[in-house]
Protein backbone atom coordinates (compact mmCIF):
# COMPACT_ATOMS: atom_id res chain seq x y z
CA UNK A 1 0.00 0.00 0.00
CA UNK A 2 1.35 3.40 -0.94
CA UNK A 3 1.96 5.94 1.74
CA UNK A 4 2.49 9.67 1.46
CA UNK A 5 3.81 12.25 3.93
CA UNK A 6 1.13 14.89 4.13
CA UNK A 7 1.15 18.11 6.02
CA UNK A 8 -2.25 18.59 7.58
CA UNK A 9 -2.76 22.22 8.58
CA UNK A 10 -5.59 22.44 11.07
CA UNK A 11 -7.28 25.54 12.43
CA UNK A 12 -7.03 25.47 16.22
CA UNK A 13 -9.10 27.56 18.58
CA UNK A 14 -9.50 27.16 22.30
CA UNK A 15 -12.12 29.57 23.67
CA UNK A 16 -10.57 29.46 27.15
CA UNK A 17 -7.10 30.55 26.13
CA UNK A 18 -7.10 31.90 22.57
CA UNK A 19 -8.11 35.32 21.32
CA UNK A 20 -7.65 34.30 17.71
CA UNK A 21 -7.58 30.92 15.95
CA UNK A 22 -4.18 29.68 14.86
CA UNK A 23 -3.05 27.14 12.31
CA UNK A 24 -1.24 24.07 13.56
CA UNK A 25 0.52 21.75 11.13
CA UNK A 26 0.87 18.00 11.63
CA UNK A 27 2.85 15.71 9.41
CA UNK A 28 1.04 12.46 8.87
CA UNK A 29 2.04 9.56 6.70
CA UNK A 30 -1.24 8.83 4.99
CA UNK A 31 -2.25 5.72 3.14
CA UNK A 32 -3.45 6.49 -0.34
CA UNK A 33 -6.97 5.21 0.27
CA UNK A 34 -7.44 7.38 3.35
CA UNK A 35 -9.86 10.22 3.59
CA UNK A 36 -9.10 13.44 5.45
CA UNK A 37 -11.10 12.15 8.42
CA UNK A 38 -8.65 9.21 8.73
CA UNK A 39 -5.79 11.67 8.90
CA UNK A 40 -7.57 13.64 11.64
CA UNK A 41 -8.25 10.45 13.56
CA UNK A 42 -4.59 9.54 13.24
CA UNK A 43 -3.62 12.93 14.68
CA UNK A 44 -6.11 12.57 17.51
CA UNK A 45 -4.96 9.04 18.38
CA UNK A 46 -1.21 9.43 17.92
CA UNK A 47 -0.07 13.04 17.80
CA UNK A 48 -2.40 15.39 19.65
CA UNK A 49 -5.32 14.22 21.75
CA UNK A 50 -6.54 17.79 22.25
CA UNK A 51 -7.71 18.18 18.66
CA UNK A 52 -11.51 18.52 18.62
CA UNK A 53 -13.81 17.73 15.70
CA UNK A 54 -17.14 16.01 15.10
CA UNK A 55 -17.54 12.74 13.32
CA UNK A 56 -19.52 9.57 13.60
CA UNK A 57 -20.31 7.26 10.71
CA UNK A 58 -17.32 7.61 8.38
CA UNK A 59 -19.62 6.90 5.42
CA UNK A 60 -21.36 10.14 4.42
CA UNK A 61 -24.59 9.34 6.22
CA UNK A 62 -24.46 11.12 9.57
CA UNK A 63 -23.46 14.54 8.25
CA UNK A 64 -21.23 15.38 11.24
CA UNK A 65 -17.80 15.82 9.71
CA UNK A 66 -18.45 18.78 7.41
CA UNK A 67 -15.42 21.09 7.29
CA UNK A 68 -13.55 23.40 4.96
CA UNK A 69 -10.90 21.38 3.17
CA UNK A 70 -8.60 23.63 1.16
CA UNK A 71 -11.31 26.29 1.32
CA UNK A 72 -14.08 24.05 -0.01
CA UNK A 73 -16.96 22.75 2.17
CA UNK A 74 -16.54 18.98 2.25
CA UNK A 75 -17.37 15.96 4.33
CA UNK A 76 -14.01 14.88 5.78
CA UNK A 77 -15.09 11.26 5.31
CA UNK A 78 -15.63 11.81 1.58
CA UNK A 79 -12.50 13.86 0.87
CA UNK A 80 -9.97 11.37 -0.45
CA UNK A 81 -6.33 12.05 0.28
CA UNK A 82 -5.28 10.99 -3.22
CA UNK A 83 -7.21 13.93 -4.66
CA UNK A 84 -5.03 16.41 -2.77
CA UNK A 85 -1.45 17.61 -2.86
CA UNK A 86 0.97 17.14 0.04
CA UNK A 87 -0.50 20.01 2.01
CA UNK A 88 -4.11 20.05 3.12
CA UNK A 89 -5.68 22.92 5.02
CA UNK A 90 -8.58 21.94 7.30
CA UNK A 91 -10.82 24.58 8.88
CA UNK A 92 -14.26 24.58 10.49
CA UNK A 93 -17.22 25.28 8.18
CA UNK A 94 -17.34 28.97 7.36
CA UNK A 95 -20.38 31.14 8.19
CA UNK A 96 -20.71 29.34 11.52
CA UNK A 97 -19.14 30.52 14.81
CA UNK A 98 -16.22 28.40 15.96
CA UNK A 99 -16.70 26.74 19.34
CA UNK A 100 -13.43 24.86 19.49
CA UNK A 101 -10.99 23.78 16.78
CA UNK A 102 -13.12 22.28 13.99
CA UNK A 103 -16.34 22.33 15.98
CA UNK A 104 -18.87 24.96 15.01
CA UNK A 105 -21.94 26.35 16.72
CA UNK A 106 -24.90 24.99 14.75
CA UNK A 107 -27.75 26.34 16.91
CA UNK A 108 -28.79 28.81 14.21
CA UNK A 109 -29.19 26.07 11.62
CA UNK A 110 -31.12 23.81 14.01
CA UNK A 111 -33.54 26.62 14.86
CA UNK A 112 -34.10 27.50 11.21
CA UNK A 113 -34.55 23.89 10.23
CA UNK A 114 -37.20 23.41 12.92
CA UNK A 115 -38.95 26.67 12.00
CA UNK A 116 -40.05 25.44 8.57
CA UNK A 117 -42.13 22.60 10.06
CA UNK A 118 -40.16 19.73 8.54
CA UNK A 119 -42.75 17.03 9.15
CA UNK A 120 -45.97 15.83 7.58
CA UNK A 121 -48.98 18.00 8.31
CA UNK A 122 -51.87 15.85 7.05
CA UNK A 123 -54.68 17.55 5.17
CA UNK A 124 -57.21 16.07 7.58
CA UNK A 125 -57.10 13.82 10.63
CA UNK A 126 -56.90 10.25 9.58
CA UNK A 127 -57.69 7.41 11.98
CA UNK A 128 -55.24 4.51 12.05
CA UNK A 129 -58.09 2.19 11.05
CA UNK A 130 -58.07 3.85 7.60
CA UNK A 131 -54.75 2.13 6.95
CA UNK A 132 -51.58 3.48 5.42
CA UNK A 133 -51.27 6.28 2.94
CA UNK A 134 -50.93 5.15 -0.64
CA UNK A 135 -48.35 6.77 -2.85
CA UNK A 136 -47.51 6.03 -6.43
CA UNK A 137 -43.87 5.98 -7.59
CA UNK A 138 -44.49 9.26 -9.41
CA UNK A 139 -45.68 10.85 -6.15
CA UNK A 140 -42.53 9.65 -4.40
CA UNK A 141 -40.30 10.96 -7.18
CA UNK A 142 -41.57 14.50 -6.59
CA UNK A 143 -39.78 14.74 -3.24
CA UNK A 144 -37.43 11.77 -3.00
CA UNK A 145 -34.19 13.61 -3.74
CA UNK A 146 -34.86 16.11 -0.92
CA UNK A 147 -35.19 13.30 1.62
CA UNK A 148 -31.53 12.46 1.00
CA UNK A 149 -30.38 15.57 2.90
CA UNK A 150 -28.19 14.62 5.87
CA UNK A 151 -28.12 18.11 7.45
CA UNK A 152 -24.36 18.36 7.06
CA UNK A 153 -24.59 22.15 6.53
CA UNK A 154 -22.10 22.21 3.68
CA UNK A 155 -24.68 24.19 1.70
CA UNK A 156 -24.77 26.89 4.39
CA UNK A 157 -21.01 27.19 4.20
CA UNK A 158 -21.12 27.39 0.42
CA UNK A 159 -23.93 29.94 0.37
CA UNK A 160 -22.49 33.48 0.25
CA UNK A 161 -25.95 34.88 0.97
CA UNK A 162 -26.07 33.11 4.33
CA UNK A 163 -22.62 34.50 5.07
CA UNK A 164 -23.71 38.04 4.23
CA UNK A 165 -27.24 37.92 5.63
CA UNK A 166 -27.28 35.59 8.66
CA UNK A 167 -31.10 35.89 8.92
CA UNK A 168 -31.48 33.96 5.66
CA UNK A 169 -33.27 30.67 6.39
CA UNK A 170 -30.93 29.01 3.94
CA UNK A 171 -30.71 26.14 1.44
CA UNK A 172 -31.23 22.94 3.48
CA UNK A 173 -34.13 24.27 5.57
CA UNK A 174 -36.03 25.61 2.56
CA UNK A 175 -35.34 22.41 0.64
CA UNK A 176 -36.78 20.29 3.41
CA UNK A 177 -39.85 22.55 3.49
CA UNK A 178 -40.14 22.02 -0.26
CA UNK A 179 -39.78 18.27 0.31
CA UNK A 180 -42.91 18.24 2.51
CA UNK A 181 -44.77 20.65 0.25
CA UNK A 182 -44.21 18.24 -2.64
CA UNK A 183 -45.49 15.26 -0.66
CA UNK A 184 -48.95 14.07 -1.71
CA UNK A 185 -49.76 13.14 1.92
CA UNK A 186 -49.08 16.65 3.15
CA UNK A 187 -51.48 19.56 3.52
CA UNK A 188 -49.27 22.01 5.39
CA UNK A 189 -47.88 24.09 2.56
CA UNK A 190 -49.66 27.31 3.57
CA UNK A 191 -48.16 27.05 7.08
CA UNK A 192 -44.66 26.69 5.66
CA UNK A 193 -45.19 29.44 3.09
CA UNK A 194 -45.62 31.96 5.91
CA UNK A 195 -42.00 31.28 6.81
CA UNK A 196 -40.23 30.37 3.62
CA UNK A 197 -41.97 32.95 1.39
CA UNK A 198 -40.90 35.77 3.73
CA UNK A 199 -38.03 38.05 2.81
CA UNK A 200 -35.69 36.13 5.16
CA UNK A 201 -36.87 33.02 3.38
CA UNK A 202 -36.42 32.12 -0.22
CA UNK A 203 -36.16 35.74 -1.36
CA UNK A 204 -32.68 36.16 0.08
CA UNK A 205 -31.51 33.58 -2.43
CA UNK A 206 -30.18 34.82 -5.76
CA UNK A 207 -29.37 31.41 -7.22
CA UNK A 208 -25.61 31.42 -6.82
CA UNK A 209 -25.98 27.65 -7.09
CA UNK A 210 -22.99 26.90 -4.83
CA UNK A 211 -25.16 24.91 -2.39
CA UNK A 212 -25.98 22.33 -5.04
CA UNK A 213 -22.37 22.15 -6.22
CA UNK A 214 -21.09 21.19 -2.77
CA UNK A 215 -24.00 18.97 -1.67
CA UNK A 216 -22.54 15.50 -0.98
CA UNK A 217 -25.93 13.84 -1.48
CA UNK A 218 -26.95 15.62 -4.73
CA UNK A 219 -30.06 17.06 -3.15
CA UNK A 220 -29.90 20.19 -5.39
CA UNK A 221 -31.13 22.74 -2.86
CA UNK A 222 -30.64 25.53 -5.40
CA UNK A 223 -33.20 23.91 -7.67
CA UNK A 224 -35.63 23.49 -4.78
CA UNK A 225 -35.34 27.17 -3.89
CA UNK A 226 -36.01 28.30 -7.46
CA UNK A 227 -39.09 26.07 -7.55
CA UNK A 228 -40.25 27.61 -4.27
CA UNK A 229 -39.75 31.09 -5.74
CA UNK A 230 -41.73 30.19 -8.83
CA UNK A 231 -44.58 28.70 -6.77
CA UNK A 232 -44.57 31.65 -4.34
CA UNK A 233 -44.73 34.06 -7.27
CA UNK A 234 -47.71 32.24 -8.74
CA UNK A 235 -49.31 32.38 -5.24
CA UNK A 236 -48.73 36.11 -5.04
CA UNK A 237 -50.23 36.88 -8.41
CA UNK A 238 -53.20 34.65 -7.58
CA UNK A 239 -53.81 36.27 -4.22
CA UNK A 240 -53.44 39.84 -5.42
CA UNK A 241 -54.67 39.83 -9.00
CA UNK A 242 -57.27 37.10 -8.86
CA UNK A 243 -58.71 37.22 -5.34
CA UNK A 244 -61.86 35.47 -6.57
CA UNK A 245 -59.92 32.28 -7.31
CA UNK A 246 -60.09 29.96 -4.34
CA UNK A 247 -56.76 28.93 -2.88
Amino acid sequence: MSERQIQIEVLRYNPETDIEPTIQAYTVSCLNEWVVLDALNYIKDNLDATLSYRWSCHMAVCGSCGMMINGEPKLACKAFIHEYSDRIRVEPLVHFPIKRDLITDIEDFIAKFASVKPYLIPKEKRPISDGEYQQKPEDLLKFKQYTLCINCMLCYSACPKYGLVPEFIGPAAISIAHRYNQDSRDGGRHHRQEIIASSEGVWECSFVGACSEVCPKHVDPAGALQQVKLASTIDWYREHLMPWVKK
Binding site: Y13, P15, D18, I19, E20, P21, V94, H95, P97, I98, K99, D105, P160, G163, L164
Partner: peptide
Protein backbone atom coordinates in the same frame (compact mmCIF):
# COMPACT_ATOMS: atom_id res chain seq x y z
CA UNK B 1 -15.68 37.21 19.88
CA UNK B 2 -19.16 36.30 20.97
CA UNK B 3 -20.18 34.06 23.88
CA UNK B 4 -16.91 32.12 23.75
CA UNK B 5 -17.48 31.42 20.08
CA UNK B 6 -15.29 32.90 17.44
CA UNK B 7 -17.05 34.54 14.50
CA UNK B 8 -15.29 34.83 11.17
CA UNK B 9 -16.82 37.78 9.38
CA UNK B 10 -17.44 37.70 5.66
Amino acid sequence: MNKNSYIREV
